[in-house]
């Protein structure tokens, strides 16, 4: 009997797992960034015909599997191959054209010449070393230089997913409806384009140092013991916050709003503060920075011992997969450390 139920369950799960629904998976994993109909957002657009006609299914599958390290797009290592295939089929359903197919044959060109061309034709948008444009995807709510952020081309995720022929095709045809032009139309020769492909491919062997940063951090918080009383420490912190050019927003108990007034634990106090210029710039780099907001210092008193602590922005920063944001987190780390030091001196 148990065996039958077990077998039955097995059949049911195989049916369910065997036919994952692409639309639902896309909605659960991708639409927050790429838009419910692929129009883009924190992520780049995926539904443009010029995009779908210039990438093969392998490119889509590999991009989902490996993500783009340091460029926001996460690696979906937890999805099964069947689930990824279902998402790819769903994305394909936005286009009437069949998926293009590209060969895996390497293209040989003069990478040195490609390097010169890249500096004059591509670096303005894709960055000097192919590190990609500032910011992410398509942001509607804030000012930006280009309507779509040029993707990073020196990225291990991109280089693993894209074949040489796919890159060549993109350079020849461009992506209509995006800032990416056809470079044949712009006057480059077929040979120039092959040289560019060789140069882009050469990055696969020398991955940028930026990918290796901000990973050595183990500390989850920054904290120091204060030689002062709770009250004195709070006053010191307020001064320190202002002297770092931040605006104090409020002082409150940690439990404020969670229990009735007067029942909060008075020995856990938080100070909220902000620097709006800094914040504005950080939001342009990653709209998800709200997870760092507002800046917060927590002061606690346990058995007469007063401790001041903040989150470690470098620890949180890893979760965002955004190399550009890491720079802001380093700055924030510095500010937090200075405020804590200042207040407990």
């Amino acid at each position: 009997m148990h065996l039958i139920i077990g077998l039955l369950l097995l059949v049911i799960t195989t049916v369910v797992v065997g036919e994952p629904r692409g639309g639902e998976l896309y909605s659960a994993h991708c639409s927050a960034c790429h838009g419910d109909t692929g129009g883009g957002g924190v992520g780049v657009p995926l539904s443009l015909p010029s995009f779908l006609d210039s990438v093969d299914d392998k490119f889509l599958r590999m991009t989902i599997r490996h993500g783009r390290p340091g460029r926001v797009m996460p690696a979906f290592s937890q999805l099964s191959d069947a689930q990824i295939d279902a998402i790819v089929r769903f994305i394909r359903s936005w286009s009437k054209e069949p998926a293009p197919e590209f060969s895996d044959e390497p293209i040989r060109g003069d990478a040195q010449h490609g390097k010169q061309l890249f500096a004059s034709e591509c670096a303005d948008c894709h960055g000097e070393k192919g590190e990609g444009g500032r910011g992410t995807g398509v942001t509607f709510s804030r000012k930006r230089d280009l309507p779509i952020t040029p993707p990073a081309l020196n990225n291990p995720g991109f280089l693993a997913a894209a074949s040489d022929e796919m890159i060549r095709h993109t350079l020849k045809t461009g992506r209509l409806g995006t800032p990416m032009d056809s470079f044949l139309a712009d006057g480059l020769s077929e040979q120039d384009i092959d040289d560019l492909v060789s140069y882009v491919r050469s990055w696969e062997k020398q991955l940028p140092v930026t990918e290796k940063r901000a990973v050595t951090v183990a500390e989850t918080t920054i904290s120091v013991e204060s030689p002062y009383t709770l009250k004195e420490t709070i006053e010191n912190l307020k001064d320190a916050i202002v002297s770092q050019n931040f605006i104090l927003i409020r002082e409150d108990t940690l439990e404020h709003g969670l229990v009735r007034e007067g029942e909060e634990d008075p020995s856990e106090v938080i100070l909220h503060f902000c620097n709006f210029k800094f914040l504005y710039e950080a939001l342009a780099v990653d709209p998800r920075v709200g997870m760092f907001l507002p800046c917060q210092v927590t002061v606690t008193e346990v058995a007469g011992k007063v401790t001041v602590a903040t989150i470690n922005p470098l620890y949180l920063s890893r979760l965002f997969n955004n190399a550009e944001l890491s720079e802001y987190c380093e700055k924030m780390h510095e500010v937090y450390a200075l405020i804590l030091e200042d207040a407990t001196l």
Partner: peptide, 19 residues
């Protein structure tokens, strides 16, 4: 191991879109 790049993992953040 500590120096190896840690790829962004989809499970680090929970996100959703509302129409």
């Amino acid at each position: 191991l500590l120096l190896l790049p840690r790829p962004g993992i989809a499970e680090d953040m929970i996100m959703t879109r509302s129409v």
